[in-house]
Design a protein around this nucleic acid. Structure first.
Lengths: 152, 152
DNA sequence: TGTAATTCAATTGCGCGCAATACAATTGCA
DNA sequence: TGCAATTGTATTGCGCGCAATTGAATTACA
């Protein structure tokens, strides 16, 4: 009886510990990215937005939001800052005036080259083999999607 | 040559993907915790602080910060909010007047019972076996510590 | 002992994240 | 066609996270 209660307690604690592990790992990643991204004049969420736009630009805010799991409350000011920095242009779509389409400026496109210095540094900081990284990434994505699905 | 370049590119992308996976999983966890913690009147970081204090209170701000990987810039206002909510008391230490010691109020201690409803819900939302959770947690903690160590 | 260095907490400023709300454009449907 | 429902973006407000700075208390050590 004591044994099974202890076991139960441990499992319950584990859920708190797993969440804290994800939380603190995300913060640690941010600490590693920060000095690298400072050189690009970007924050980490801004870097994520640029990664998405480098793949394909002329996207609606909503589209970027779906890629990054962020809403307009976060993205609108972020994209305005990228625009103020001269990296993107925000234009009301002619076909659907509700949409604002985001396109890269030449400076925004040019930043991609400078940004190539970032991933090797992150890779080194992780000190993980490629298979281990892939496995961990896949497990996290599966957990994230399961958590999101659990919200109904 | 193309093969090895492609492979290299994939590995470099992987570091971005692993970080994004950690980032988005942490946000997803927060979304799951939020409705549960609303019932306690706590945010997730406040819940973390209470977890630490329920284990042992009469702690310095610095001590809590080390447990949560947070600094005084984050904790001072957070702890003031917990104090305003009547859950903790902040007192300048008599032995070392630089320190502010945090103790639980009866209401803060009492909240622990209500908080017991949280972990089972998180456990259910994760939909993972205990061994899988433990493995993932350990991998994340190892990665987090490696990332922190890489900052020199 | 006296002074410099260190430690601890608080404060300021900025950029997220997100809920709630607002508003205009578009869509759906009676 | 007309009107309600939906969609896309923006805005406001709040609580982090963290860098940078301040100021007071303590420690180290010359």
């Amino acid at each position: 009886m004591n044994d099974s209660n202890d076991f139960n307690d441990e499992v319950l604690k584990l859920s708190n510990q797993l969440c804290f592990a994800a939380y603190s790992t995300a913060l640690a990643f941010n600490s590693v990215y920060k000095p690298l991204l400072d050189g690009l004049g970007l924050t980490y969420p801004q870097y994520l937005a640029m990664l998405v736009l480098w793949e394909r630009d002329d996207r609606a805010v909503k589209d970027i939001g779906q890629a990054l799991h962020l809403d307009s409350g976060t993205l609108t000011p972020l994209l305005k800052r990228l625009e103020a920095a001269g990296l993107v242009v925000r234009t009301r779509s002619r076909e659907d005036e509700r949409q604002v389409r985001i396109t890269l400026t030449p400076a925004g496109r040019a930043l991609r080259e400078k940004a190539k210095a970032v991933p090797p540094r992150i890779l080194a900081a992780c000190d993980l083999s490629a298979p281990k990284m892939l496995e961990l990434k896949d497990q996290l994505v599966a957990l994230r999607d399961q958590l999101t699905a659990s919200l109904d």
